[in-house]
Protein backbone atom coordinates (compact mmCIF):
# COMPACT_ATOMS: atom_id res chain seq x y z
CA UNK A 1 0.00 0.00 0.00
CA UNK A 2 1.44 3.33 -1.01
CA UNK A 3 1.65 5.96 1.63
CA UNK A 4 -0.08 9.26 1.07
CA UNK A 5 1.77 11.03 -1.68
CA UNK A 6 3.19 14.48 -1.25
CA UNK A 7 1.13 17.34 -2.66
CA UNK A 8 2.39 19.17 -5.71
CA UNK A 9 2.00 22.79 -6.68
CA UNK A 10 0.28 23.27 -10.04
CA UNK A 11 -0.45 26.43 -11.95
CA UNK A 12 -2.45 26.89 -15.13
CA UNK A 13 -4.49 29.49 -16.95
CA UNK A 14 -8.21 28.80 -16.72
CA UNK A 15 -10.61 30.99 -18.69
CA UNK A 16 -7.86 33.58 -19.03
CA UNK A 17 -7.04 33.72 -15.33
CA UNK A 18 -3.81 32.41 -13.79
CA UNK A 19 -4.68 29.95 -11.04
CA UNK A 20 -2.66 27.65 -8.84
CA UNK A 21 -3.22 25.08 -6.15
CA UNK A 22 -1.81 22.17 -4.20
CA UNK A 23 -2.94 18.76 -5.41
CA UNK A 24 -2.22 15.13 -4.70
CA UNK A 25 -0.93 13.40 -7.84
CA UNK A 26 -4.14 11.34 -7.94
CA UNK A 27 -6.38 14.41 -8.05
CA UNK A 28 -8.28 14.30 -11.32
CA UNK A 29 -8.41 17.51 -13.30
CA UNK A 30 -12.20 17.64 -13.05
CA UNK A 31 -11.99 17.59 -9.25
CA UNK A 32 -9.40 20.37 -9.28
CA UNK A 33 -11.64 22.47 -11.53
CA UNK A 34 -14.80 21.86 -9.53
CA UNK A 35 -13.46 21.78 -5.98
CA UNK A 36 -10.31 23.90 -5.89
CA UNK A 37 -11.42 26.46 -8.47
CA UNK A 38 -15.14 26.21 -7.63
CA UNK A 39 -15.99 26.14 -11.34
CA UNK A 40 -18.86 23.70 -11.13
CA UNK A 41 -20.13 24.12 -14.68
CA UNK A 42 -17.92 21.21 -15.71
CA UNK A 43 -19.95 18.16 -14.75
CA UNK A 44 -19.04 14.70 -13.56
CA UNK A 45 -21.23 12.15 -15.31
CA UNK A 46 -20.09 8.59 -15.87
CA UNK A 47 -16.55 8.91 -14.49
CA UNK A 48 -15.52 6.24 -16.99
CA UNK A 49 -14.49 8.35 -20.00
CA UNK A 50 -17.70 7.67 -21.89
CA UNK A 51 -20.17 10.50 -21.39
CA UNK A 52 -18.16 13.67 -22.06
CA UNK A 53 -19.98 15.80 -19.45
CA UNK A 54 -16.57 16.73 -18.02
CA UNK A 55 -15.16 17.93 -21.37
CA UNK A 56 -12.93 20.99 -21.19
CA UNK A 57 -10.62 22.56 -23.75
CA UNK A 58 -6.92 22.15 -22.95
CA UNK A 59 -4.33 23.82 -25.20
CA UNK A 60 -6.70 23.58 -28.15
CA UNK A 61 -7.89 20.00 -27.60
CA UNK A 62 -11.17 18.69 -26.18
CA UNK A 63 -10.33 16.56 -23.17
CA UNK A 64 -12.43 14.54 -20.74
CA UNK A 65 -11.18 16.09 -17.52
CA UNK A 66 -12.08 12.97 -15.51
CA UNK A 67 -9.37 11.11 -17.41
CA UNK A 68 -6.41 13.36 -16.77
CA UNK A 69 -4.62 14.19 -13.55
CA UNK A 70 -4.44 17.82 -12.46
CA UNK A 71 -0.62 17.52 -12.27
CA UNK A 72 -0.62 16.76 -15.98
CA UNK A 73 -2.35 20.06 -16.72
CA UNK A 74 0.39 22.09 -15.02
CA UNK A 75 1.31 24.99 -17.31
CA UNK A 76 -1.61 24.52 -19.68
CA UNK A 77 -4.37 26.83 -20.88
CA UNK A 78 -7.88 25.62 -20.16
CA UNK A 79 -11.31 26.83 -21.20
CA UNK A 80 -14.33 25.56 -19.30
CA UNK A 81 -17.99 26.33 -19.94
CA UNK A 82 -17.60 29.38 -17.69
CA UNK A 83 -15.17 30.82 -20.27
CA UNK A 84 -17.34 30.29 -23.35
CA UNK A 85 -19.54 33.42 -23.22
CA UNK A 86 -18.50 36.52 -25.17
CA UNK A 87 -16.16 38.96 -23.41
CA UNK A 88 -19.05 41.37 -22.77
CA UNK A 89 -21.02 38.65 -21.00
CA UNK A 90 -23.50 38.02 -23.80
CA UNK A 91 -24.14 34.49 -25.00
CA UNK A 92 -21.69 33.07 -27.53
CA UNK A 93 -23.06 31.85 -30.83
CA UNK A 94 -23.08 28.28 -29.51
CA UNK A 95 -24.84 29.19 -26.29
CA UNK A 96 -27.39 31.18 -28.27
CA UNK A 97 -27.82 28.23 -30.63
CA UNK A 98 -28.51 25.80 -27.79
CA UNK A 99 -31.08 28.25 -26.42
CA UNK A 100 -32.78 29.03 -29.73
CA UNK A 101 -32.86 25.44 -30.97
CA UNK A 102 -33.79 23.87 -27.62
CA UNK A 103 -30.51 21.97 -27.62
CA UNK A 104 -31.01 20.90 -24.03
CA UNK A 105 -33.63 19.50 -21.74
CA UNK A 106 -32.19 18.60 -18.32
CA UNK A 107 -28.97 20.44 -19.16
CA UNK A 108 -26.55 18.02 -17.54
CA UNK A 109 -24.61 17.23 -20.73
CA UNK A 110 -24.75 20.81 -22.02
CA UNK A 111 -21.44 22.19 -20.66
CA UNK A 112 -19.57 19.28 -22.21
CA UNK A 113 -21.55 19.53 -25.44
CA UNK A 114 -20.83 23.23 -25.81
CA UNK A 115 -17.12 23.03 -24.95
CA UNK A 116 -16.74 20.12 -27.38
CA UNK A 117 -18.71 21.90 -30.11
CA UNK A 118 -16.57 25.00 -29.50
CA UNK A 119 -13.44 23.04 -30.50
CA UNK A 120 -15.24 21.25 -33.35
CA UNK A 121 -16.18 24.59 -34.94
CA UNK A 122 -12.62 25.87 -34.52
CA UNK A 123 -11.34 22.86 -36.46
CA UNK A 124 -14.18 22.68 -38.95
CA UNK A 125 -16.08 25.98 -39.19
CA UNK A 126 -18.70 24.67 -41.63
CA UNK A 127 -19.38 21.05 -40.69
CA UNK A 128 -21.99 18.87 -42.35
CA UNK A 129 -24.63 17.24 -40.18
CA UNK A 130 -22.68 13.98 -40.38
CA UNK A 131 -19.46 15.70 -39.33
CA UNK A 132 -21.25 17.27 -36.37
CA UNK A 133 -22.63 13.91 -35.27
CA UNK A 134 -19.22 12.28 -35.62
CA UNK A 135 -17.56 15.22 -33.87
CA UNK A 136 -19.77 15.03 -30.79
CA UNK A 137 -19.70 11.22 -30.59
CA UNK A 138 -17.83 11.47 -27.30
CA UNK A 139 -20.69 13.33 -25.60
CA UNK A 140 -23.80 11.53 -24.48
CA UNK A 141 -27.22 13.14 -24.06
CA UNK A 142 -30.02 11.07 -22.57
CA UNK A 143 -32.79 13.64 -23.16
CA UNK A 144 -32.80 15.22 -26.57
CA UNK A 145 -32.11 12.44 -29.03
CA UNK A 146 -29.42 14.79 -30.36
CA UNK A 147 -31.59 16.34 -33.12
CA UNK A 148 -31.74 19.73 -31.48
CA UNK A 149 -28.12 19.61 -30.37
CA UNK A 150 -27.10 19.14 -34.01
CA UNK A 151 -29.38 22.05 -34.98
CA UNK A 152 -27.90 24.21 -32.23
CA UNK A 153 -24.40 23.63 -33.59
CA UNK A 154 -25.59 24.30 -37.15
CA UNK A 155 -27.18 27.53 -35.93
CA UNK A 156 -23.91 28.58 -34.26
CA UNK A 157 -21.83 27.71 -37.33
CA UNK A 158 -24.14 29.78 -39.54
CA UNK A 159 -24.02 32.71 -37.13
CA UNK A 160 -20.21 32.62 -36.89
CA UNK A 161 -19.86 32.30 -40.68
CA UNK A 162 -22.41 35.05 -41.36
CA UNK A 163 -24.55 32.70 -43.44
CA UNK A 164 -28.23 32.01 -43.19
CA UNK A 165 -29.26 29.14 -40.93
CA UNK A 166 -31.31 26.64 -42.91
CA UNK A 167 -33.36 24.54 -40.58
CA UNK A 168 -33.49 20.96 -41.80
CA UNK A 169 -36.89 19.70 -42.82
CA UNK A 170 -38.52 17.34 -40.32
Amino acid sequence: MATQAKKTQVSMKVNGVEVDGLVEPRTLLVHFIRENLQLTGTHIGCETTHCGACTVDIDGLSVKSCTMFAVQADGSEITTIEGIANADGTLSALQEGFRQMHGLQCGFCTPGMITRAHRLLQENPDPTEEEIRFGIAGNLCRCTGYQNIVRAIQYAAAKINGTEFQEAAE
Binding site: A2, A5, K6, E24, P25, R26, V71
Partner: peptide, 11 residues
Protein backbone atom coordinates in the same frame (compact mmCIF):
# COMPACT_ATOMS: atom_id res chain seq x y z
CA UNK B 1 -14.11 7.33 -8.46
CA UNK B 2 -10.66 8.31 -7.25
CA UNK B 3 -7.51 6.33 -8.01
CA UNK B 4 -5.24 5.07 -5.26
CA UNK B 5 -2.21 7.04 -4.14
CA UNK B 6 0.81 7.13 -6.36
CA UNK B 7 3.94 9.20 -6.89
CA UNK B 8 4.06 11.16 -10.13
CA UNK B 9 7.23 11.33 -12.22
CA UNK B 10 7.70 13.40 -15.33
CA UNK B 11 11.10 12.58 -16.84
Amino acid sequence: MIPGHFTYHRP
